[in-house]
Design a protein around this nucleic acid. Structure first.
Lengths: 339, 339
DNA sequence: AAAACTTATGTCATCGATGACATGACTTGC
DNA sequence: GCAAGTCATGTCATCGATGACATAAGTTTT
């Protein structure tokens, strides 16, 4: 590793002068500048970022903590963050939190020690109060899920609105018995989506049947199982609202295996190939890349202007992408309540 | 930010003693240790990793550079690397190279300045000689594609073998006119897959029709277009070998749109939902997570034993996953050549 | 021509943790 | 009772880059 001192010796100047040349300081004669540059080239000098960032106390790194980097949703979020970060010469350190909430805190703390300049987190635990002590060291932005027991910036999708729209869409296609599948209502996101679902049913004057609320799945396979149970009910649903793309990729094959593609399906969250499945699956699109970008931009803005005030709560609108999966031939029954 | 000096002052000792307590040095009295630990707790001391790693000249970071973090294949590779790295308290810094080969070098150089301890790269450019100068600073491991103009460790899938097997599989299902779709043969991976394809045709005594070699696509959409062109040929293929999952996700919908799911399809590289499409798509599975893990383990092994010798070239076997997409009802024609 | 300023370059200290070595207190052995 | 040894703790220098300040030339002003 060539250091500035090595270059300085070679060029017959002091390390400080090399530093000046490197940083385009105008107070260097053309002659000296050229000698130093020649020395840098000969010795293939490359700055030691670690030294510089250490001195400045900042690492030019944004930490990202998501449940799973390999999940298409978070992979896309990561990409959005990366592109925005790169425009400011920032690198990203990525961590998967996994699915054990108990580990969240320690995983984050390992990341934090690296003097990151900002943290973007999609938490899995039910309490983020442990992050409070870091908040005056660097900005923290939550994505996908709102922070619990902590005040911090967040960018979440419109869970309530999206769920409402999805459910309404199913109702508009004539469905009256609509099930909701997903994980636990302890997940704030899921709770909101359930509320949106319920609100849409109520707005249409449909009754809320608890048998059709099939939450609590842990993964796609569990959702598939839940789905089979639902269809075996005496008064089975004609439509399923999957509250999360992760479960949709379990539910869809289950319907297919049962040869029940007549059951309508709508997914909160787009997923790969959803548009070419048969039937293609209608979804509420969350635009993960955009979520990543705005979260990164907020981090960067907060770094640039630490005292400026920003809107803390940010809800990103979602968009219904209509495909085929809700067009099953259900007779258009009159709604129970009048229009 | 509390420093060791702060803790030291609080506990009435020197910074060095705090360092000793922190690093479990036995030469500290129980009494002092407790006082220091109390001070650490009160001041919420957290070590400054940047200072430590700067002093040691290592950053405890593995750099990862892939064409696109959001691509499911590389997202899975990344996850594999992350899990292996975490076991050694290493973090990962992820970078997308994009699709402009001219930018590869500069993107990598920005990453390298951060004094990474190792680099895992899936290159996109046709020349990696620029990496030579880094090789004695830290280990470099190539994945997915072999290095060009550089000697370095690599872990690649069995491109030739997988392509051979895929093509053979199509032949075994009665196909005689088999097209290959993919990107440019300038990509080493694609070149090898083309060779595997050709070898399989030859082994079966089938002639090689250049009209069926439809390489050069840039993305899924281009592949879809190529696919339509192929099917419009007077003597159209009955089967398509997609040399890359990225293109399969373009080809499949194209076949579907044309209502030509009778055309057999096999993909080099599994992709999300391939198993639930109709027909489900047979693939050559590359096990990206495993690729990531072994690459990371090699980096870690090289860091631990810099002088040890390792096998540089590593070919990871691939596995044919048979699904429905090759079972189209093509009459079993006799092979042109005798068995 | 002396004072005042400008300009190129150098010296030193610093960021936080920690190795190398020093010091001083106390113990052990003969 | 004193040399040698053990142990807790401290001091200093270091990693590489760079701000603050210093110096030594040359230039302008009066």
């Amino acid at each position: 590793m060539t250091t500035m001192q090595d270059v300085a010796t070679r060029a017959g100047v002091s390390a400080k002068t090399v530093s000046r040349v490197f940083n385009d300081d105008p107070h260097v004669t053309e002659d000296t500048r050229e000698r130093v540059q020649a020395a840098m080239r000969e010795l293939k000098y490359v700055p030691n970022m670690l030294a510089r960032t250490f001195r400045e106390g900042r690492s030019a790194v944004i930490g990202i903590a998501v449940p799973d980097v390999a999940d298409p949703f978070f992979a896309a979020v990561t990409k959005g963050i990366e592109l925005a970060a790169r425009e400011h010469d920032m690198a990203i350190v990525v961590t998967s939190l996994g699915d054990n909430p108990a580990l969240e805190k320690s995983i984050i703390e390992t990341t934090v020690r690296r003097q990151i300049d900002g943290l973007i987190i999609a938490p899995i635990a039910a309490d983020q109060s442990y992050l409070a002590r870091w908040q005056d060291s660097f900005p923290i932005v939550f994505i996908d899920r709102i922070p619990t027991k902590l005040h911090a910036d967040y960018f979440v999708e419109d869970d309530f609105g999206g769920a409402f729209e999805a459910t309404q869409h199913l109702i508009a296609h004539g469905h009256r018995r609509i099930a909701i599948v997903g994980d636990s209502t302890e997940v704030p996101t899921t709770k909101l989506r359930l509320e949106g679902y319920r609100a849409a049913l109520e707005a249409a004057g449909l009754e809320n049947d608890d048998d059709l609320i099939a939450l609590g799945s842990r993964d796609g396979d569990a959702a598939a199982h839940v789905c089979r149970t639902l269809l075996a009910l005496p008064d089975a649903p004609t439509a399923i609202f999957s509250s999360n793309a992760r479960f949709s990729t379990g539910v869809f094959p289950a319907l297919q295996a049962l040869n029940r593609t007549d059951i309508a399906l709508i997914s909160f969250g787009d997923f790969p190939m959803a548009d070419v499945l048969q039937p293609s699956v209608s979804v509420i699109d969350q635009n993960p890349r955009h979520v990543g970008r705005v979260a990164a931009e907020r981090i960067l803005a907060r770094i640039a202007a630490p005292t400026k005030r920003f809107r803390r709560k940010n809800v990103i609108p979602v968009k219904l992408i209509e495909r085929q999966s809700c067009q099953s031939s259900v007779p258009h029954l009159p709604l129970a309540a009048s229009q």
